[in-house]
């Protein structure tokens, strides 16, 4: 709110509108659902979501916990950042790891992105939601990310088995959200639905929201694989014959599990510089994630199975 002094405040900019809409959604679901939770995946979208939640309930704390479904393969810098952010927020954090997957030794290197994501992330999330009986989960997904997400509702209904049926979605009119569910059923709620990648960056810039340093360029050890730069974050990444990590100035456009997320070569070490780079780049955001390369319309299939 900038125009505090004048009697008629300035018209809302598009960023103001997005903020107001997201806060409205957060409050609406919190008021109507019995046990909401906010998924926190440490990335920039989660950072914005958490910031909005703090704003929505200020001066109180958001009346729900954070949930991180941990695949155990996040970058070290992400874990450090998560613990710091949570400590400062004053909110509770639940970390859930699919223990069954862990016992089976599921990992992205031997099992590939599809299996690893399914077991550690999709199954892990379902386990966590069932275990705690959450009836609504906030997530940071945006409609501009991918074609099947363009049709996703802000409040998305999931059956008791967590399935998303694109044909059974509830009509969503005005800003009236139908939050009613039967026991065992749940809602996935996307307060950032109408944000674009640029809006997210712009808002982080305007509100000075802390983000994981991996988004900014720095010299990091990487190997080149299938045309992607994979960072060697710890000794779990087996090097192939002839591969030797080289220090290169790289950054990440999206942050997933480390062997699945490709880095881009860059010298952009400030927020404006990475926004500039993003706007001039000619690839869309999700290209950095190996997961989408599996099949056309793959995201729709994953969503039906309960992937966020």
């Amino acid at each position: 709110m900038s125009a505090a002094s004048s009697s008629t405040p300035a018209p809302l900019t598009q960023l103001d509108r997005l903020e107001a809409e997201s806060i409205h959604i957060l409050r609406e679901i919190t008021s109507e659902c019995a046990k909401p939770v906010m998924l926190y995946s440490i990335g920039k979208d989660s950072a914005v979501l958490l910031h909005l939640a703090k704003k929505a309930f200020y001066p109180g704390l958001p009346p729900f916990p954070l949930l991180h479904v941990d695949t155990t393969w996040k970058f070290q810098a992400m874990y450090a950042f998560r613990d710091e952010v949570v400590k400062r927020s004053g909110m509770d954090l639940i970390v859930h790891i699919n223990q069954e997957g862990l016992r089976q030794g599921i990992n992205p290197i031997t099992h590939g992105s599809g299996v690893h994501t399914d077991i550690m992330k999709t199954q892990g999330l379902r386990q966590a939601l069932d275990l705690h009986g959450f009836d609504a989960a906030f997530g940071g997904a945006r409609r501009d990310e991918e074609k099947s997400r363009a049709k996703e509702r802000i409040v998305s209904f999931r059956s008791a088995s967590h399935r998303w049926d694109p044909k059974q979605q509830r009509p969503e009119l005005w800003s009236l959200y139908n939050t009613r569910v039967h026991r065992g059923e749940s809602l996935r709620v996307f307060p950032l639905s109408n944000w674009t990648e640029l809006d997210v960056w712009q808002y982080i810039y305007r509100e000075q929201i802390p983000i994981v340093p991996l988004y900014l360029s720095a010299p990091r050890p990487v190997v080149e694989r299938n045309g992607q730069l994979i960072m060697v974050d710890d000794d779990r990444l087996p090097l192939r014959e002839g591969e030797r990590p080289i220090e290169r100035s790289v950054r990440f456009r999206t942050l997933g599990c480390y062997p699945l997320t490709g880095a881009v070569e860059s010298t952009a070490s400030t927020l404006p510089a990475i926004i500039q780079e993003m706007l001039l780049a000619s690839t869309s955001e999700r290209q950095g994630r190996l997961i989408d390369h599996d099949a056309s319309a793959s995201m729709e299939k994953k969503k039906q199975e309960g992937y966020f």
Partner: peptide, 17 residues
Amino acid sequence: VTPEGDVESAREGRSVM
């Protein structure tokens, strides 16, 4: 009330406390 301090006014569309 806002996290950045109280404000005097707000217009249609804002989420407020």
